[in-house]
Each structure stands twice: as C-alpha cells, then as structure tokens.
C-alpha cells in the first residue's frame, strides 16, 4: 500500500492489499456476530422467560456489559491467550481467531441484552395465548424467537455495528500484523498516526460504505418480511 495515491484511486483501482484488509475485517466481525448470536439469542430468550433469584442482577450486569470498553475486553482475552495464560497453549494470540474471540466477548452482551428485552415484550403479549394452547417451555422459546425475528435482525445489526467499529480489542489481541491481522480500523489507526491520510480516509470511506450497505439490506429484508407477516 503506497501512501502516494489518493483515497479515491485506492478504492477504485481495487488495491489488493486494501481488499485483503477489507476482507479480514468483514470475516472477523461477521464471525464474531455469528458466534455472539449463537450464544446471545438463546441466553437472552432464556433470561426473558425464566424467573430465578438474582435474575434482576444478571440483567443489570448484562446491560452494563453492553458498554464494556473494547480495550478492556481485548486485555481480558490477551491475558487468557498469552503464553502464560490459561489458554496460552492454543497459540491463538495475534491471530484472527483471537480477534474473533475478543469481538464475540464485546458483542454477546449486546445481543443477549437486546434479545432479552425484545423477547420479553413479545412474551407479555403472547403468554396467555401460548398458555391456552398448552405450549411447553421449549416451544415458547422457539415461537417467540421466530416471531421476533425481524426485531432480532436489528439486534444483530447493533452487534455488527459494534464489532465493525471497534479497534481497541482487536489491536490488543491481533497485533495489527500486516497481511495477517490488519483490519480496516487498525489500519486507519496506524496510517493516521504515520500521517498517511489518503489511505486512512480511503479505508474509512470503505468502512462506512460497508456498514451502510449491510444496514440497508437488513432494513429491506425486515420491511419485506413485516409486510408478509404483519
């Protein structure tokens, strides 16, 4: 990546190094959102439908974790994966895998907390009907998650937004290694500090464009779906 070209040129000429960075960014953030969804949606739904001592406390902690500072999440995963850490033998530190784990830690509370709220609201609406139909606990979870699916798309978008935008966690556990763990946000941070503004701006534009396109697609899908199911 040369610093001589303009931001627009870089984007338009399809600079291979730039696209490798874009690809890795998307791969890491989407994988993290997928992992966080697999953990956070069932967790949030379960929390919405169960009552146990300490539940309020769990909800407050979960809501607070939505604001977990990325560098702190990065530090926690760093300690976990570092050579002397409990999972050090896996050799994951400074790999894309470590970045996915760190972002999953950041995104899971968002998805779980928002899913809890969404599913609980729908549960209040549905509970009498489902009780009258004799639907059991598993059936309830499945029904509520399915019927809330368009709202949950927005929840996933919130998670993706957080993952795509953050730099603190992945720079700590990924190390910003060129051609291996460098993403759009870590590259922007680096290039800006080096004074290569055109490259930083180019990456920034690409990042914004991707986020806008993904949100537009999800919004369209939601609208189409809602037209069909009411």
């Amino acid at each position: 990546m040369t610093g001589e070209m303009s931001a627009l040129q870089l984007v338009l000429t399809g600079d291979p190094a730039l696209y490798a960075v874009v690809r890795l960014s998307l791969l890491v953030s989407l994988s993290a959102v997928l992992c966080a969804a697999l953990i956070g949606i069932p967790l949030g739904a379960l929390l919405a439908l169960t009552r146990f001592p300490g539940r309020e406390g769990v909800i407050v902690v979960l809501n607070a974790l939505m604001g977990l500072p990325p560098v702190v999440a990065g530090l926690a995963i760093y300690l976990l994966l570092s050579r002397s850490g409990p999972l050090g033998t896996l050799g994951l530190l400074f790999t894309p895998g470590a970045m996915v784990i760190a972002q999953t830690l950041l995104v899971t509370p968002i998805i779980a907390a928002l899913t809890r709220q969404t599913v609980e609201d729908l549960w209040l609406e549905y509970r009498d009907e489902l009780a009258a139909l004799g639907v059991g606990p598993l059936g309830r979870v499945a029904t509520l998650v399915w019927d809330a699916r368009f709202s949950l798309v927005t929840v996933l978008l919130a998670g993706f937004g957080r993952a795509a935008a953050e730099v603190g966690a992945i720079i700590v556990v990924g190390g910003n290694i060129e051609g291996f763990t460098r993403t759009m946000t870590t590259a922007i941070a680096l290039e800006t500090s080096k004074g290569d503004l055109p490259l930083a701006i180019g990456l920034g534009l690409v990042l914004i464009a991707i986020v806008v396109v993904i949100n537009a697609l999800a919004w369209g899908a939601r609208r189409a779906g809602e037209r069909y199911v009411g």
Binding site: D128, E129, A132, T143, D147, Y228, V229
Partner: peptide, 13 residues
Amino acid sequence: AIVFQRPVMLRRS
C-alpha cells in the same frame, strides 16, 4: 379452548 376478550394474533399469516 378459549378465545380471550382481546385475542392476540401471532405475527404470522
């Protein structure tokens, strides 16, 4: 079976 005074329709067809 029961039909409540204000029945809630599932978000489906």
